[in-house]
């Protein structure tokens, strides 16, 4: 995509800032952030609630525009993407995992996974087959016909991960993916994300306040008051 190859950063932030409000009501959610996220690594953005993690994720994914600085998504400045193009990039190359899973209640597990494949432009039979494969891969094939309200939290998050990688995303954005899970389930999910990075070469960017996730990350950035503090290993 745009000459991007899996050796280049999937996402690259340069002097990125995001300010909400105006005049005396201005709040800087992200301040002068610079970092790169490469395929095959799991990056952990660690910070307390309100530190600007989620805002940074939305900037990386091109869901909001920076006040200053720039984001290169798959090698291209997001400002130069047309909105339609950006929508296609998200449909084809970016996967999202949310803190509260955010599965669609009126769709079954299979349909929740399948829907992202639909945006991906696959045919009905093909996307159904792929969705089943993904559920099998995460050991939740038996949930295919179940609706989210009948699943456990851990099951929901697995379906959410399956949905996130359904489109064969190169970049996975995870906002507090373990936040609503018990410790064991949380570790299971982060381990799953780590495997996706290591075995499938995905670039996984996780925002969390959970210090216990440190052991799973390739690189860790602390974020406080919107600033990215020096990288630690």
């Amino acid at each position: 995509m745009n000459g991007w190859n899996d050796q280049s950063p999937a996402a690259c932030c340069e002097g990125l800032s995001k300010i909400f409000g105006a005049n005396e009501h201005q709040t800087a959610a992200v301040r002068d952030v610079t970092f790169q996220a490469f395929p095959g690594e799991l990056i952990l953005l660690l910070g307390p609630s309100g530190s600007g993690k989620t805002t940074l994720l939305t900037l990386i994914a091109g869901l909001s525009r920076p006040t200053s600085g720039r984001v290169l998504l798959f090698g291209k400045d997001i400002e130069s993407y047309a909105s339609r193009e950006l929508q296609r990039v998200r449909a084809h190359r970016v996967g999202f995992i949310f803190q509260t899973f955010l599965l669609i209640d009126s769709l079954t597990a299979l349909e929740n996974v399948e829907i992202v494949l639909r945006f991906n432009g696959r045919k009905t039979s093909e996307r159904r087959k792929r969705a089943r494969e993904l559920l099998r891969q995460f050991g939740i094939e038996h949930l295919a016909a179940k609706f989210p309200q009948t699943m456990s939290q851990g099951e929901k998050q697995r379906v959410a991960v399956a949905r996130a990688i359904g489109n064969d995303a190169a970049l996975i954005i995870a906002d507090e993916p373990t936040g609503s899970l018990e410790t064991k389930q949380g570790f299971g999910i982060i381990e799953l994300l780590r495997r996706l990075a290591k075995e499938q070469g995905k670039c996984v960017v996780v925002a969390s306040h959970d210090l216990r996730l440190r052991d799973f990350a390739d690189r860790i950035f602390r974020i406080e008051d919107g600033r990215l503090l020096p990288e630690s290993s």
Partner: peptide, 16 residues
């Protein structure tokens, strides 16, 4: 609206 926001985020084209 949350469902619609999710669908938009994960790449739903407006026509969908």
């Amino acid at each position: 609206r949350k469902d619609f926001a999710i669908l938009k985020t994960i790449g739903s084209p407006p026509a969908f």
